[in-house]
Design a protein around this nucleic acid. Structure first.
Lengths: 227, 227
DNA sequence: ATCACACAAATTGTCGACAAAAGTATCATT
DNA sequence: AATGATACTTTTGTCGACAATTTGTGTGAT
């Protein structure tokens, strides 16, 4: 029961989704040049739809384009991760604040149920939690902000790039139980209708998450240097 | 001496800029249906470049598109303004925070000079300040964040929509001197390298600004009702 | 008079071809 | 051998035409 299933109506949509998935999952590696003719034969569509797909990918910062030269998949870097998470902290902090104001009581109950469901998984040792559960939690709060600008920016825009970092840097890592506690505190603040606290806790939560990834990233780098 | 002059290299760029300007300035009214064929004859380009321009406009939330139906210029509403300014508060707050950390001393000096320059204008009673000066101030802080995601989102994305609200609701209004004081306080916080305070002051500044517009908007509405 | 269906008109989506620009290789000159 | 100019190749940008979908209209039945 996914809360948000964007459905492809046009051929350009399908191509956009396919391309985005291929890039995010790393099938098309970071830094690759995206040749329009090549992709048009590979995906069996005209160059026009490829161009539109690439334009959309550019809009969510997954590829970079230069006029008369072409598009490349963005390069992942520590600095880029830092910048991305600064923006994420800002926007999701605001989302949590607004969620504390605008979520309905039913929404909040659903959120609590989700966490309870996770709690049992965490205790039983499954880390099934991380990927699906974590994004579900964050999605609900973002949607709970009831702010369409915010929702679009985060869900259609940034989250795919965030996922690209997480997938390609192999972030199936730990940080399960501590993140779970943080989630609980956030929900408590929302339930108490405390926007100030909800924002602060969400920002901290995302800062920790960033540090976790950044640490793994730099430790991977040092491993690489010594190998 | 504009800090940021995006230059059109391709024909699609030019059309995008023209269209954006026409919409923001209200020449193409809010809510208008954008016919591709019509625009292609009007701007003397092919439908392909019109489509690309419309796609880009959609990416910055200036038009809304439905598949197989078409694109319309967004409708301006109190709720939309509220949402927009919530996001703006969040992002520019973060920008001020980062500016306090990342701006060079020269950058800060330049900012101070700008304010001094404005001070003389304010005292001499010219309200030349508002439009150009205000955006210049905010631009510098946004650029001072040195965060490319943030910069792109705000400068290439949101600011045109913000300007659309300000232009079309006739915001040449007052609030000059009080905004000037707020600007000074923000710069002081940045100079003191106090990110926490800089963010808080910027957020307050934008909240006030929103209230100012919202008040004008609702008073206009009531005038309309009684006339 | 109203609703349903079918048909027509108009608009968007997709395609292949041409034009223009960037990149590459070759050759001449120093 | 290095450098610069020139021709060539490849890739992106732009265009007009066709296909598919939606919207508006009109006809007929209830």
């Amino acid at each position: 029961m996914s809360l948000f299933t964007e459905q492809a109506v046009t051929s350009s949509d399908k191509t956009f989704f396919s391309l985005r998935k291929a890039i995010v999952e790393g099938e098309i590696p970071s830094g690759t040049k995206l040749s329009e003719t090549e992709l048009s034969t590979k995906y069996a569509v005209s160059r026009a739809v490829i161009r539109e797909a690439i334009n959309r990918l550019e809009a969510c910062h997954i590829v970079e384009r230069k006029a008369n030269v072409g598009a490349r998949v963005v390069a992942l870097s520590q600095a880029g991760l830092e910048e991305l998470y600064q923006v994420r902290e800002s926007l999701e902090g605001m989302a949590a604040r607004l969620a504390a104001l605008n979520m309905s009581d039913e929404d909040i109950n659903g959120l609590t149920q989700l966490l309870n469901h996770h709690a049992s998984n965490v205790k039983s040792g499954e880390s099934y939690y991380q990927e699906a559960g974590d994004v579900d939690f964050h999605y609900r709060i973002i949607l709970g902000s009831k702010n369409n600008h915010l929702i679009t920016m985060l869900v259609n825009g940034m989250y795919h790039l965030i996922r690209m970092y997480r997938v390609q840097l192999g972030m199936a890592g730990p940080r399960v139980t501590t993140a779970f506690d943080e989630h609980q505190h956030i929900v408590r603040a929302i339930r108490n209708r405390d926007p100030e606290l909800a924002e602060m806790l969400m920002r901290r939560h995302i800062q920790y998450s960033k540090n976790n990834i950044a640490n793994k990233l730099s430790s991977d780098n040092s491993k690489e240097r010594t190998s």
